[in-house]
Design a protein around this nucleic acid. Structure first.
Length: 479
RNA sequence: CGAGAUGUAGCGCAGUUUGGUAGCGCGCUUCGUUCGGGACGAAGAGGCCGCAGGUUCGAAUCCUGUCAUCUCGACCA
């Protein structure tokens, strides 16, 4: 490629300026467009198609685990939001309010849902009477609004799309089991569909969801070494049930409070995909969620037979993959760059020379490896290559995370490790005291990400105060 | 929300210091030639200079306000 004759402005190199690289990608891969309202973006067809694939796969997993979809209103009366004290304190600073209906001022202002626990609780209180009504395993795919001060496409927007699961159970054990089950669903989805390794763990008390007894999360490490929370699952105990009076009569004719959970993932996952797999040529999409899995590019397409052959291949391969044929009259080189920018996992080149030999050339997006494939073997080869791209992406992301995970036993080692090797996860022991958690952040710049389920004993004492350690914690700089 | 930067054609920018008819490259349209890593030629189209006020005979340019985007902090999926 003639570096100094680029006709179109290239994207910023990720090593040079990761933040700019990110915004270049979301714009140039046509995922989003900004609007005139801060923090509210248009998700364009190509970006939305990624979300639709995420939705389709996850929704299938939710159905398999017995969940039903519902739809709650987008407005929450102030009095309802205020029923659970911790919850309202957590969310009040970032809710948007509706105060007028037409030209009439409302008696009670309505908040635009930042999350729907309160609506589900009100509803559950109405419909649950007996242990026979339990559990209720509900989910909804909606958008929510949080009036963020700093916004970034996909990572932090004022309105974002998500799913929120809300379930109620007869016992604490069942609810805890649900919380763990859904965290595992998310983990499996991230690894199997997004090729993104995650760390499972529990949030520290200072970091848990407003109103929750325990918040679990999956944490991913981005290419630049910053952490991103990819999903959460909360156990509420009976706190909300008491605030909203959600009771049922058990087998012994005694009144009981339900035990509740909620869990969610958002369009932030698209940001995670970009920052986990992307490179200097653009987006790199995991095959499971790529809107186009194979792009067919005819070479010398004006020559007789080429376009016909390409169209035949598209027809044939559409049975086994999401396929696009680009027969526009842009040059082949232009198309190569375009579909690399858009992260299409496989490119299939078909030209006169190939047709003569009953073959085509397939190029992987992740490593640009070229394979010459007989046209008779495409039904076997394409799924193999898509799987290989997935594995390649997962292994690369895992290797990046491992190379950027540092065990530290003293406070001084933390900034030193980050300075020497670049940002990443710090593994260090913690006594459980919030004061130490704050101090680590203040002194070293890394916050607690989670207390991982897979514990290691790196030392006997807290990295900060030297008192006996309770947990090994993952720390990091977060998006 | 605090500090800083930016806003001129779809994209990237020049023009602002020193006020005087809005420019360049890419892209776009049409025709022709091309086609295995961002092709070439010719002819075209496209702008309330982010928005609102003000100063001035005259504002992209000076002043005030406001909105959006980016960066760094504080807060968060």
């Amino acid at each position: 490629m003639a570096e100094n004759k680029k006709m179109v402005e290239a994207i910023t190199s990720m090593d040079e300026d990761f933040a700019k690289w990110y915004t270049d990608i979301v714009k140039k891969a046509e995922l989003i467009e900004y609007t005139s309202v801060k923090g509210c973006m248009v998700i364009r067809p190509y970006g939305y198609a990624i979300w639709e694939n995420i939705q389709r796969i996850l929704d299938g997993m939710f159905k398999q685990t017995g969940h039903e979809n519902v739809n709650m209103p987008m407005f929450i009366p102030e009095s309802l939001l205020q029923k659970e004290k911790d919850h309202v304190e957590g969310f009040a600073p970032e809710v948007a309010w509706v105060t007028y209906g037409g030209s009439e001022k409302l008696e009670e202002r309505l908040c635009v849902r930042p999350t729907s626990e309160t609506l589900f609780c009100e509803h559950f209180a109405n419909i649950v009477h007996s242990y026979r009504d339990l559990p209720k395993l509900y989910n909804q795919w909606v958008s929510v609004v949080r009036w963020e001060k700093t916004t970034r496409p996909f990572l932090r927007s004022r309105e974002f799309l998500w799913q929120e699961g809300h379930t109620i159970h007869a016992t604490a054990e069942e609810a805890i089991e649900e919380t763990e089950r859904m965290l595992n669903v998310y983990t499996r989805f991230c690894e199997e569909s997004l090729a993104m390794p995650v760390v499972q763990g529990r949030k520290t008390d200072s970091d848990k969801f407003a109103g929750a007894e325990a918040t679990y999360c999956i944490e991913a490490l981005m290419h630049d070494g910053k952490a991103l929370q990819a999903g959460t699952s909360h156990y509420f105990g009976d706190g909300f049930a008491k605030a909203f009076d959600i009771t049922f009569t058990d087998k012994n004719n005694k009144m009981q409070f339900v035990h509740e959970t909620s869990w969610g993932v958002t369009t932030r996952l698209i940001g995670a995909i970009i920052m986990t797999h992307g490179d200097d040529n653009g987006l790199v999409l995991p095959p499971a969620v790529a809107p186009i899995q194979v792009v067919i590019l005819p070479i010398a397409q004006h020559k007789p037979g080429v376009l016909d052959k390409a169209a035949q291949l598209k027809e044939r391969l559409s049975k086994i993959a999401r396929v696009k044929l680009d027969d526009s009259d842009n040059s082949p080189g232009w198309k190569f760059s375009e579909y690399e920018m858009k992260g299409v996992p496989l490119r299939l080149e078909i030209g006169p020379r190939d047709i003569e030999q009953n073959q085509c050339v397939i190029v992987r997006r992740d490593n640009r490896e070229k394979t010459v494939v007989s046209l008779d073997e495409l039904e076997q080869k394409i799924p193999e290559l898509l799987a290989a791209v997935h594995d390649g992406l997962y292994q690369k992301a895992l290797a990046n995370r491992e190379a950027r995970t540092y065990a530290c036993t003293t406070m001084e080692e933390i900034p030193a490790a980050l300075e020497k090797n670049g940002d990443g996860f710090i593994k260090a022991m913690w006594c459980g005291d919030e004061a130490c958690e704050d101090k680590v952040k203040e002194v070293t710049g890394v916050g607690s990400r989670c207390i991982p389920f897979k514990q290691e004993k790196l030392a006997d004492t807290c990295v900060c105060c030297g008192k006996p350690a309770q947990h090994m914690v993952y720390w990091g700089k977060a998006y």
